[in-house]
Simulated assay, not measured.
Amino acid sequence: ELFLHDQPEPTPGLLKAALAHVQFETIHPFLDGNGRLGRLFIPLLLCEQKVLREPMLYLSLYFKTHRQYYYELLNNVRLTGDWEAWLDFFAEAVIVTTTQAVDTARQLIDLAGEGRDKISGLGRAAASTLRVHRVLMEQPIATAKRLVEKTGITPATVNNCLDHLERLGIVRELTGAKRNRIFSYTGYVEIMNQGTDLPG
């Protein structure tokens, strides 16, 4: 606790998160969920330390992808005090994860621009369809009802907008039903799913 509060001396936030994660996993305070909580602890601590503005550093996938080595490093810290190898691994996890996040953000920006370009050719329907498109950039899987709530547009207009977006290949209806339909911004979902498959 003193260490987390920079006593006896301040510690850089990223280094503090790396060291605190090992300590949490070593203490293993709960019967279940220690791994998930320990990984969640990293971005929350970085926010508290003002390293991040939002808890958006998701290291879990990197740790799971390198699960065996991750556990070996944790054990080596406990058994032999090999902090250096753990810190190298943690730094690599941060570099890889943040690089992927920047690439994903750029792809989403490009996708949004492509969508707007397609929608701009709709004529009078473009303005309303752009409003629906903007909401789908924030919530890429949504019901028509949810889009009505978020845009303030009438249900009939939202459904017309969704028809336009389907024809443009921007969204896809997932249920095949006529009521309570759910729409997916397919390109957005595909980008967010990139690299999330764990090695077999």
Rank of each mutant, 00 (worst) to 15 (best):
L19W: 09
Q107D: 12
E48W: 11
L73K: 04
E1A: 14
F183C: 07
D82M: 05
C161N: 14
L74N: 08
T65L: 00
K50L: 12
D110Q: 10
L61K: 14
C161Q: 01
N76G: 06
G123V: 02
L40S: 08
L165M: 14
L162D: 03
H133G: 00
G169V: 05
Y71N: 03
K150T: 01
G113W: 05
T186I: 13
R124M: 11
L19V: 14
R181Q: 14
S60K: 00
D117M: 13
E190C: 03
A91L: 08
E149M: 13
H66F: 12
A85S: 14
Q139K: 15
D82V: 06
K50A: 13
L14S: 06
D103S: 08
E114M: 09
E173R: 11
F3W: 09
V51R: 06
G38P: 03
L122M: 02
L174F: 04
A142V: 03
P155A: 01
L147Q: 00
L61C: 01
P155T: 07
D6F: 06
C161Y: 04
N76Y: 08
D110M: 07
A127G: 07
V135R: 15
I182F: 04
T196F: 08
T175H: 03
Y62V: 01
G113L: 10
L79A: 15
E72M: 15
N75L: 15
I191V: 15
Y62N: 04
H5W: 08
T154A: 11
A17S: 11
Q139R: 15
L52M: 02
G38W: 02
T97R: 01
L45R: 08
T104L: 10
F89S: 05
G35M: 12
N193A: 15
L61Y: 15
R36S: 10
N75G: 15
G176S: 07
T154Q: 10
V51L: 07
V148T: 12
Y185M: 12
N180C: 09
D110L: 09
V158Y: 02
M137A: 13
H5N: 09
A105F: 15
L111D: 04
T186N: 03
T196W: 07
D197W: 07
G200C: 13
G152P: 00
I109H: 09
G81L: 03
R36E: 11
A105I: 15
L74G: 07
G123A: 05
L15Q: 12
R131I: 04
C47K: 15
G123W: 00
N193G: 04
P10M: 09
I109W: 12
G176D: 08
L37D: 06
N75H: 15
L87W: 00
S120M: 06
G121V: 09
L108S: 02
T151A: 04
E54Q: 10
I42K: 00
R181H: 01
L174N: 07
L111T: 10
L165R: 06
T129C: 05
A126K: 04
L111E: 10
K118T: 05
E54D: 09
R167P: 00
A101Q: 12
Y62E: 02
L14V: 10
D6M: 05
L40W: 11
L108C: 12
I182N: 00
R146C: 04
E72A: 11
T143S: 14
L57G: 03
G195Q: 07
E149W: 03
A144V: 01
H5V: 08
G33Y: 01
Y70E: 01
I95W: 03
C161R: 07
